[in-house]
């Protein structure tokens, strides 16, 4: 099929960017969205132009490296789908597709469609862990039974891939879904309770300092999240945060 692409091109962090139009032919419906961009880049290189820079790695929807705001939505129109798992059968011959980088001041553009998401790492460094050193002498893994429901909920929260779609899609560029996923994972496990109060306060403080907006519960993050991280996690974060004030 033939497509019209409108892609954000920006040479560097401080350069001025703009949308550039490309026409691409020979796109097959079995291709993934990123393979379509590979094809475009191949053609650009052959013409001596600079290829479009975009982040990607595992191409199976789990590493969280790929991003892209496609036709006004994070990771494109499909639900529970990362850009790398979005396939071209979703589009029709002659479609126009706009492709933009994640937009948030906390995610400055590095080049073209690549943004710097290291702020998410810094939030995790503030408390996204249980303080346990490596030791061959921790207690046996089955010492503390954990109700299946708690373990399952913790798992669901822990499946966040840190792609930043929640921030990209939120009208406030808030990272609450991302932060809450980690807070909620540990809050629901006995091992994580010990540091629960400190964790939530530290992570929220860094989240604010990194320049993310605040949550207004629009719920867009949950809808656009490729892993279906639930808004419940934000409620859990809020509860943990309020409880932490009483400690």
């Amino acid at each position: 099929m033939k497509l019209n692409l409108k892609i954000w091109r920006q040479a560097g962090p401080n350069a001025k960017g703009r949308m550039v139009d490309y026409q691409i032919d020979g796109v097959e419906s079995d291709m993934s969205f990123l393979e379509m961009l590979d094809l475009l880049n191949e053609k650009l290189i052959a013409k001596g132009e600079e290829p479009v820079a975009f982040d990607h790695d595992c191409r199976e929807g789990i590493c969280g490296m790929c991003s892209l705001y496609i036709n006004g939505e994070a990771h494109g129109p499909d639900r529970l789908t990362t850009t790398c798992q979005l396939h071209m059968r979703r589009f029709k011959d002659g479609d126009t597709i706009t492709i933009e980088p994640w937009r948030a001041n906390a995610f400055p553009v590095i080049k073209d469609l690549i943004v710097d998401r290291s702020a998410l790492d810094r939030i995790q460094q503030a408390g996204g862990y249980i303080s346990v050193n490596t030791s061959g002498r921790t207690v046996d893994a089955n010492t503390i039974p954990i109700p299946k429901k708690d373990a399952d909920n913790a798992f669901d929260a822990a499946t966040c891939i840190g792609c930043g779609a929640c921030v990209a899609t939120c009208k406030n560029a808030s990272a609450m879904l991302f932060v809450s996923a980690k807070v909620a994972q540990f809050a629901q496990l006995p091992q994580g309770r010990v540091e629960a109060a400190k964790r939530v306060q530290d992570m929220v403080a860094v989240m604010d300092a990194e320049g993310f907006g605040s949550c207004t519960n629009t719920g867009a993050c949950e809808v656009e999240c490729p892993k279906g991280i639930s808004l419940s996690n934000i409620a859990i974060l809020n509860k943990e945060f309020i409880l932490a004030q009483t400690k």
Binding site: G72, P77, R103, N172, S174, G219
Partner: peptide
């Protein structure tokens, strides 16, 4: 006002209606 300031460069094509209600936004 502060939330607005967290995204200085706006999307050229944004379709927020796909994911959230008008009232919430």
């Amino acid at each position: 006002w502060t939330n607005k300031s967290k995204r200085s460069v706006k999307y050229v094509n944004n379709n927020p209606g796909a994911a959230s209600s008008w009232a919430s936004r």
